[in-house]
Every structure is written in C-alpha cells, then in structure tokens.
Design a binder for these strands. Structure first.
Length: 253
DNA sequence: ATGGTAGACAATCTA
C-alpha cells in the first residue's frame, strides 16, 4: 500500500496539483490537511473521476481534513469527542484494507507560550487520550501535519530555532508520548540523514535556501512498521507555480 | 521585536 500525507493549504487553489500528483503517483491513500473548504464546497467529483473515493471534514476559511482512497474507507469518524471547546476540523479517521488511518492537522501553536500554543498542547492531550482507546498491536497509521519537528535533525538550524514553535522541548515531549504508546516515525525508520524537510515558509525565499522543517509525518504501529518498504518526501510539488508551503510525505508497506 | 509571503476574505487572522 502506498500511503501519503500532504498539507495543501487550500484545496481550492491546489486541486490541480493534487489531481496531477495522484495521476502520477497512484497512491492508494492520500490524507490531506488545510482544505479550507466547507463540506458542501468539497470537490468530490474530481476525485471520483480519478477512481478514488473521498471522506472529508471541513469548515470555511480554516483547517479541514480529507482522506482520499482507491479502496473503500470504512468506519469513518470525525473530530475528538472529548473536547469541550468548539470543534475545529482537524481529525478524520477511517479504515482501508484493515489499516486504521488517522489523519490529523495538529494546531500550529503560533508562538511558544501563547494561547494558541496551549491549545496545541491540550489538543495533543486529547489526541493521545483518543489513541489510547485503540489497541497498539493493530495496524494503525497516524499521519498528517503534526506541526512539530521531532529532532534537531529535522530543522534547518537547531541553534537558531531552539525553543521556538514546532521545535520546543515541551512539544517534542508531548509527541514522545505517542512513541511510548507504540507508534514509530516511519520516515525515520528508513532514513537517518538530517536535513530532510516537508515544509518551507513562503517568506524569505525559504525553499530556495532550504530553510525547512520536517513537520509532516506518518507514524505507524508495529504491524505496519514490520512491513515498511520505502519512505520518502516528494519535493516536486513544492517547486511548482503557486505551490503549497508543504510537500507530500509517502510510505510504501 | 519585526518582517518577510500566501490564502481567505474584505480588515485582519492564520500559518
């Protein structure tokens, strides 16, 4: 199975890129973040025409997640039931071919110490609670835009970015709890070299200068880890005209 | 401390 994740930063703008990418890469499952589309505006037909099925959870202007799949998506659910605050569309999950796919758009957090940063940490707490309702010996993939670079090797400059958003020790420690539960970073299982990024800021010519972060991830339980064949980042879409600031991360197992 | 750019949406907010 080829499984990919891509924060498209507006599916409205990026639909041609996504369709082209699916045609070329023939992924079995693609999970998308930041569709920024209310459900009634979702371009379902474009995916059906390609032979894919799609499930989505979106809202106007912000957030929005979707799972695109060649095979049927079963037991679909949306959001975190436990949250007391108004729901943002940041989680959609479903099973494909016996593999449970959890597509997340973890809050960005804006700045360490800010209100949004605390929202990010508490959202991660709720996600962890939710994960704990599953058995870790099941084939599960937690994937999406985590908005956290797990290690210093995952940022362009660990000194300059030390302690800042997506890099802070508290965020990394929060993510470590998902490892302790039984998830592994599939990309890092197969690729050890530093400087492999999935996101570059639009500003300051960050892509040209390779000032990136590896914040888009596919984390898997042992049954998936055991059959991993490949894991890679496709920088191609980031080089296109009017690109998303993120580029796809893919595994094959 | 700020700014740089992009997207949604029409003055700012989010990233």
């Amino acid at each position: 199975m080829i499984l990919a994740t891509w924060n498209v930063n507006s599916l409205n703008v990026r639909l041609p890129h996504v369709i082209e990418w699916l045609k070329t890469n023939q992924a079995d499952v693609l999970s998308i973040q930041e569709t920024k589309l209310a459900d009634e505006k979702f371009p379902r037909a474009a995916f059906l025409e390609l032979g894919y099925t799609v499930e989505f959870s979106g809202e106007k202007t912000y957030n929005g997640v979707a799972i695109v799949s060649k095979k049927p998506i079963e037991n679909v659910s949306r959001g975190l039931a436990q949250q007391g605050v108004p729901q943002q569309c940041r989680l959609i999950e479903g099973s494909v071919d016996g593999v449970h796919i959890m597509n997340v758009y973890i809050p960005n957090g804006q700045e360490v110490g800010s209100q949004k940063y605390h929202y990010k940490l508490s959202w991660l707490d709720h996600l962890l609670e939710h994960i704990h309702t599953f058995a870790s010996d099941r084939p599960i993939c937690l994937l999406g835009d985590f908005n956290i670079a797990p290690h210093d090797d995952d940022v362009y400059d660990p000194i300059e970015t030390r302690g800042t958003i997506m890099v802070s020790e508290i965020e990394r420690a929060s993510l470590d709890r998902f490892r302790q539960w039984g998830l592994s970073d599939a990309f890092r299982e197969l690729n050890k070299e530093p400087g492999q990024f999935s996101w570059w800021d639009y500003r300051m010519s960050a892509f040209r200068r390779n000032l990136g972060y590896r914040i888009d991830h596919i984390w898997v339980t042992d049954p998936v880890k055991g059959s991993l064949k490949r894991a890679w980042i496709d920088k191609g879409p980031r080089k296109l005209e009017r690109p998303s600031d993120h580029t796809p991360v893919i595994i094959e197992f």
